[in-house]
Nucleic acid binder design. Structure first.
Lengths: 126, 126
DNA sequence: CTAGGGCTTGGAGTGGACTCCAACGCAAAC
DNA sequence: GTTTGCGTTGGAGTCCACTCCAAGCCCTAG
C-alpha cells in the first residue's frame, strides 16, 4: 500500500518497502539500527515511511549484499556516501575492489560448474 | 609429509590432507564426525591416515561446498554414494539441480556486476 | 632421551547476519 | 466502532558452518 500525500513524493510503510526492496522488515530495521540506512522518516506516531530515495539506496545495498559484500564493508560505503562528494574517489576504489572480488567468484563458480558437469557426464556414462 | 608404506598406496596425515584438500584439520574432523567423509583409516595408535581416494572425495566436497551447497545436502549426496551404484540416477538428479542453482547464481552475479560497473561509471562521470 | 611439533577427543565457543519475541499502539475495512 | 492486522521497541535467540580448547598421547630429529 502506497501511502501518498498527493501533493508530495510517495512514501512506503516498512511492509511495502520490504516487498519492493526484497529485504524483510526485520532486516530493514536491522540495517537502520546499524547505520546502513540513514534514519528513515517517521509519521507523527513513529511509524517509518520510506521514500523512493530510500528504495534506491536499498537497491544498491541489495546488490552489494547479494554479491557477497560483508555488512561491515557496506557500512563503510554508507559512511562514505554520507560524508559527501569528496569521498567519491574512495567509493570508486571500494566498488572496483569489490567488482574484482565478484569477478573472482564468478570465475571460481564457472570452473566448479564445469567440474560438476564432468561428474554428471561420468555418472551418465556408468 | 607423505606417510607411505612403500609397497602399498600412499596415505596422508590430517595435516598433510588439510594442505592438499584446502580444508582445515578441524573441518576435516568435523566432516568425518557428521558423516560427510566415511570413517578414515587409522594407525595402530589412532591417528588418521587419509588415502588418495579420500582426497578425491574431498575434492568433490570442496567443489560442492564452494558452489554453495549446504552441508545437509552434501550429507545426502554422501549417503547416496555410500548406498551403491543403484543411487546413481538420484545422484545425477541432485547434481543437476545443484548445477541449475549454480547457473542462477552466476547469472545473478553477472547482472549485479553490471550494476556495480554502472555505479562506478556514474561516479567517474561526476 | 628429551624437546618440539603433530595428532587425539568431546564439547564449548565463535562470527556473521539476521530473525524472533512480547507487549503494546495505530490503522483502515466493514 | 471494533476487529484484523500492520507497525513499534529492545533485547534475546537462531542458524550455519565451522573453530577453538584443554589435556594428553605420539613421533622424529638431534
Amino acid at each position: 500500500m502506497l501511502v501518498a500525500d498527493n501533493a508530495t513524493a510517495p512514501t512506503y510503510t516498512i511492509g511495502e518497502c520490504a516487498r519492493r526492496s526484497g529485504f524483510t522488515m526485520d532486516t530493514l530495521r536491522y540495517y537502520e539500527r546499524i547505520g546502513l540506512i540513514d534514519a528513515v522518516g517517521r509519521t507523527a506516531t513513529g511509524q517509518r515511511r520510506f521514500t523512493d530515495g530510500d528504495l534506491e539506496w536499498l537497491g544498491t545495498l541489495k546488490c552489494l549484499r547479494d554479491t557477497g559484500m560483508p555488512v561491515e564493508q557496506m557500512a563503510r560505503f554508507a559512511d562514505l556516501v554520507r560524508d559527501g562528494d569528496h569521498t567519491i574517489p574512495e567509493r570508486i576504489r571500494l566498488l572496483e575492489t569489490h567488482r574484482l572480488a565478484v569477478d573472482d567468484r564468478m570465475a571460481d563458480l564457472a570452473a566448479k560448474r564445469d567440474y560438476i558437469s564432468g561428474k554428471i557426464d561420468y555418472y551418465r556414462s556408468v
